[in-house]
Structures are given as C-alpha cells and as structure tokens.
Design a protein around this nucleic acid. Sequence first.
RNA 1: GGGCGCGUAGCUCAGUGGGAGAGCGCUCGCCUCACACGCGAGAGGUCGCUGGUUCGAACCCAGCCGCGCCCACCA
Length: 854
Amino acid sequence: MTEDRLKTLESKTRYDPTEVEARIFAEWMEAGYFHPPAEGTPEENFSVAIPPPNVTGALHMGHALNGSMQDVLVRMNRMRGRNSLWILGTDHAGIATQSVVEKMLRAEGVSRHDLGREEFVKRVWEWREEYGSRIVEQYKRLGASCDYERERFTLDEGYVKAVYRVFKQLYDKGYIYRDNYIVNWDPGSHSAISDLEVENREVEDTLYSIDYPVEGSDQVLTVATVRPETMLADTAVAVNPDDKRYGDLVGRHCILPLVGRRLPIVADEHVDPEFGTGALKITPGHDPNDFEIGRKHGLEEIVAIGPDGRLTEEAGERFAGMTVAEAQEAVIAALREEGALRAEEPYVHSVPFSHRSGERIEPLISLQWFCRMDELAAPAIEAVESDQVRIAPSQWKRVYLDWMREIRPWCISRQLWWGHRIPVWYCDACEETIVAESEPERCGACGGELRQEEDVLDTWFSSAIWPFATLGWPDDTPELRAFYPTSFLTTAREILFLWVARMIMTGLEFAGDVPFRDVYVHSVIQARDGRRMSKSLGTGIDPLEEIDVHGADALRFGLLAMSSTQDVRYSDAKVQQGRDLANKLWNASRLILLNTAEVEAKPIAERIEDRWILSRLERTIASVSEKLDAYDFAHAAQEAYAFFWSELCDWYLEIVKPRLYEGEAEVSANLLWVLERTLALLHPIMPFVSEEVWSYHPSREGHLEVHSFPQADRSLFDDEAESKIGSGIELTRRLRAWRDMVEAPAATQLSCIVEGGAQPEEFVARLARFEFVENGGDPIAAVGPVKVLASAEIDAEAIAARLEKRREELRSEVARAEGKLANEKFVARAPAELVEEERTKLERYRAELEELAE
RNA sequence: GGGCGCGUAGCUCAGUGGGAGAGCGCUCGCCUCACACGCGAGAGGUCGCUGGUUCGAACCCAGCCGCGCCCACCA
C-alpha cells in the first residue's frame, strides 16, 4: 500500500461516496467489464434488456428501483463467471418527444406546420443529439453496469429495418389492415391512441333527457345522454327486444329534433331497459358501443366532430365550426326552445381521458391501421401457461392471461411526425397500395408516382421487438445467438400489457423463442405521503438528489430494502440505513485492514469464535444468494445488513479485538477472509463502497467487480459453535442489562462466580465488564448460570427490584407452560417433541424460580 | 360490474398455524484507542372488527368495516 493510501485509511473516519463513485465507475468502464463478447449460448450467458427509457426522460424512482434490481442480477451473474450483457438503449417516444420539441419551437414562435414535416423531424433529431443521452448518463450515476458500447435507439438505422420487416411480415400474413373504425381520438396530441393509453376518470356531467318524436304519431321516445351535441350524428334509436313498452315501435322511425333526420328504431340486446326510459340514441360515429350496434344493424355512420375537436359540416351549418363545448351549449339551448328537453340531472360516470395529453378522449370513426392480435396472442398465452415465461409474483400471471384471452385489435397508426413512418406507399394513378421494407421508386403496377403513408407507428410497436431488435435482428448476428432469449425482465405492472405482453408475442412470432425466461413485476414506490410520485403533483423524489446527498450505494440499498411485493411509501430511513451501512463498511474495514498481520486471507476454523463467524458467514451467503436468485431483493439486502452489522461488527469484531491488536496470524487470516467474502456478497447491491474497500485489500489484485461471487461452503456450517457462542452472547446481554438495572457506574468492577457447569467464554466477562472469580463474596443475584457477588457500590433496592422482576417473568412463564400442559388435548394431539419441549421449559423455569425464592 | 391487494409498535414495513420482528423515532447511559452516519440498555403492540375451523390462529375459512390498484361499452 502506498503512503497516500495508508494515510487515507488511517485518517478518513467517514466514507465519502461522492469522491469515490465517479472514479470507480470510470475504472470499470475503462476495463470494459460491461461489454461482454458475443460468445457462448443464451443458456450459459446472462442477459437483460433494459426497459428503454424515453429519450426525453429523466431518471425517476421507478428507473432507479428497476435499474437497481437489474444491476444486482447482472453483477451477481457476472461475478459468477457468466458472460453477462445488460442491453441499454432509449425509446424515441413518439408523442412525448414530439411535444417537447413542439413546445420548444412554440417558445421561438414557430409551429411544426410552419417548418414542414422534413424540417421538423430534423429539429427533433437535433434535439435528440443534444439531450438524448442525458438519461444514459444518469443511469451511470446509479452504477448501472449496462453495456454502454452497445447502446441502441428505437429509431437508429438497424432498428428501423427491424420495425419495417415486422410490419411487412404482419401485413403479408393479413394481420395488419387499414380500416374505418371508431378510435380513441386524443385532441391533445391530434392523434388516435390505443385502448391502453386511455385512462378512465370519474367525472360529474349532466344527464339530459331528450324527446324524439315517433314518426306518424304523437308518441315520443325519450333518450338520455351526457353528450347532447352528438345527437347531430345520431342515426338510430335502439330499444331492448324484450321491452314490452316498445315492441310495436321497432321497425318504425323517429324524427331527430333540430335535424329532422329519420332514425330507424331498432331492437338490440345491449340496451338496458332499466336505465332511463329504456331507449338509447345511437351515434355510431362518436360512441364505441353505438358503433358496434351500428355495424350490427347496418346503420349509417355520420362523423360530425372533426380531428380538431370542432363540429363539421355534417353537423349542419348551424353548428359547424363550434367546439364541442360550444356545440353542447347551443344544442341544449335549441332543444329547450323546441320544448324537446325533458329533463337534466347531475350524473357521475367514468369518462375516458388521454394518458398522454390528459385531454378528454373524443371517440370518432377514422381511417387507421390496425393489427389483429388473436393469432399472435395464442402462442404467447401458451408460453406463459406452460411457464416458458415465468411471471412473478404469481398473481400477475393470471392478470396477463386474463387480458390476453380478451385481446382486441390494436390501433397502431398515429397522426404524428416523429416516429417510424408507416412503410406503405400509395399510387394515386392506379390506387395500388404497396407495403415494402424500403422505399420503392415507382408503382410496380402502373409505374406511377408513389406517396408514402403520412402516419407513424405507435411507439409501442417498436418497443415490442426490443429484446431481439437490439441484438441485431433481422440479421443473424453473434449477439442474437449468444444472448437471445434474455434471462430476465423486471418491470412495473403498468406496462405489463403495453409492453411485456407484446414482447412475448413478437418474440415468438419473429425471433422464434420467448424474449425472456423470467418476468419480475416489482412494486411501486409511492411518495412519502402515500400518493403516487408524479411530476404534475409535485410528489416526485429525484433519485439524483438522493445520490448526491447519500450516495448511489445508499439509494440502491434503500430502494431494494424498502421494496417488497406490495407498494410502499418512499422511506428516507431505509436510504439512510444504506448510507450508514456504507460508512460502517468503510470503518470496519479500516479496523481490519490497519490491524491485521501480513497473512493470506483464509478461513481457519480452530477457535470456537472463529468457527462461529465462519458458520454465520456461510449461512448468510447461502440465504442471501437464495433470496437474490428468487428476486427477493428486500430480504436479501436486510439479511446481509443484519449479518454484517450485528454479527460481524457488534459481536465478532468486539470478541476478537485483543487478538487482532496483538497481530495474531490466525485471526488476521480469518478477518481478511470474512471481510472479502462479505464485500463480494454485498457488491451487487452496493458496488461502489465494496469496490473501494476491496482496493485496499493487501493480497487481492484487480477489481471486485470481476472477482467470484461467494458460494456457500456448507462444510463450515457449525451448529456447536453457533450454540456455544450464542449462549455467550445471551449471557453477555443479560449481564449488561443487569448492570444497567442496578445502575452500576461504568467504572465499577463487578464480580461473579459460576457454580458448576461450563465456564462462560472469555469475551463474556470482558464485554459485560464483569470479573469471573473462583469463589468468595456474597452471591446476591443469579443471572443465568452465574451469580453476581455483592459490591459496595451497587444499590440494594435496585437488586431487589431486579429480582422481583425476574420472579414475575418466571411466574408468568410457569403459568403459561402449566396451562398448556394441563390441556389434555394439547398433550394428546400436538407433536410429541413440542410437548416435550414445553415440559423441559417448565422444569427449567420452576428450578430458577426456586433458586430466586425470597 | 368483475378482479387483485392491503389494514401488525408513534412512523414505514417484514412475518403468514406452535412463545410478536426490523429500520427510523422515543427514553436512559456512554465522545470505550473502526465508526456519534457510533456503542450499550430499555419503553412501546386486545396483529381492523365479528364469527368459525384447530389441542393451538396475526397466520386458514366466512362475513363485516376501512383503504388502494387494475380491468370493464350501461347511455
């Protein structure tokens, strides 16, 4: 060790992550550990594809938790000697990115339409060059050991090729088609969006009842609606076929107020006779249910609301050009004037909103591209049913299957400029439609000019192929052969359908295998007050700030320790626990490294306390590894913590200090051994501090990052040592408690004797600050197997109180055991060893109580 | 409307058939030659409520009360 480093070790009593983390990360990058060769088979290797963050994104707690879990597994497997790849990349995030750049342009007073499509897309690329790597840099702060040399982007050249290949093949199979269909129109992003991007919110609206006169009679049909303006596009009225009230009206017509259109009265089972009057106005152009009913009955489809959210010519010139809200007001006023408005009442119901823009969805019929999902879903259902893909925790398996079994066509076109422009070309001359992986020059049929489809693909269409497209598919690359299928995927449940399900479908269809073997659905970290973390609510906690203050190791430990299977509130205490752990690791290591003799690190299981710590260490290794392998990160982290803090620091280090200070070789070898195994065990969870401490290890070269992950050595498990040292610890605790109880001053030397039986371990006297004597003095109290002798400086009353307290405890224990044993059924039916155990305890308590009798 | 999950110490959470646990906070005593981001000792809980199963229930079952999330086309 150089003078400098020795000095650091001697003088620095507090671990400073900020100084360490950047330096260590640079060392790992320099060494190229994160960039594995494309060799071996997917079974031998370990690989994970990161859920690609949006290029516009900034690292949030979800990423931090998700990233910590992936990094733990990747590092652990890398240390186990497996060729480990963590695929990194970003998502072009159509709507999100387009709106960020549009907003920027707006600040310059320019709209994207001013620029035109080509120039606008160029500007988005410029934006991406400048800001797109921000989140990647943030992953580095977390310590994520991704392969930064293989970074991908969903719009890079090779990726586009993969997307177009997929589109073409799905089209050729007849899964992708173009249709006029009712879609979720998002007036905010001026695009259609898929069902999964819609969220329903409870809204208080007004429910209006409107009279529709029946043609050729003075009867009226009263219909109820929360959207009176859509009546302008009504093309029928429906009643339930079993509804006796209206049986004779089916087949006749109503006259639509304000418009005068003749509306057929149809019978449809969808109509609930209990609701309102049992008559339902049908607007196929602007309501998903009505659309279904309309198609079933061959009704006319009128679209009266345009993509700009304003009423069109179809609504009649009286209303054309109005916004939806204006039209609603105008329609109500007009109906009132005509006396057709029968009633209005407040009405709470759920209404679709765009998850993207937050605006209320406007359902309308438009010409869009769809992908039929049934054929793709079938093998993806089978893959999960048969556990080729395992989903944990297990309840999510069923959620996945339920959704997949009800899957509906996916609207994949978006009216945006930023994204994969749909690879379809139209020939205006001969009306030919050409789908191709690259742009054709001329129409193959007539040689005419071609014009490319304006729409782009849903962003999720390209993320659906992430695990294999990032590895070079459709080419047969070494990466694909070495790392596909990937091993593991961890995700938030909110994208189980949006992303995970679709990856399984495309993986099976195009890459010939499932995309990953295990899916772990992690919990959600909520804000401190239990609300969801969100930028708009201002409830987000910035992981980078937490890293600045406490260090990446602290945040990683904290997140892993706090996150169990259920959602949890963000716990500052857990992150601090992580910070304290890093500090303690540094300090315990200082104690060891500065005091051990120059020996090789190795386990020497001779003395009882050495056997004890080795046994505890190996059991901890077994248990922590088992938990990590089962994705139980929280318990793994806390168990490693408990071993290091309580057993290693609080007990073993204190027990062996005298030997350590003497520079005893045996204890030195053991301590170095225990330290290095502990560091290696903790490294996947806290890579920085463990690597830093490792660099001071006198006899180990190279980085801990590529050292082997410990495997439990069961031959060191030692029940005898655990039991003996366990009783020593127990006795120490009781003696200390006794000291406190009688308020003995710290400096007071107390004595005790042991009558018969085995002599307690040496450390008991030292750590409890007692002296064990052979004989002499007045025994005044029994503490476990020892008797404390009288001393001038302790308070007699306190001793009496202590004795009484113990007697009380014993009496209650005796009563409990007696009660249990008096129960004949317990004795008869409980397992024999349990009954025996109870008898033994009872005898022991009775004996001690007798000894303490006044 | 359907589904999933949660109510355990002041707070945040583990535990899921045989004597209630952790971290933080709190109280008391310690700057003891690794660490005050520390050490030692404590206090603190009818395990939401009511029934049931069992020799035995925080844990299994049923009902109820509160809370959260997901899915769903009742205008």
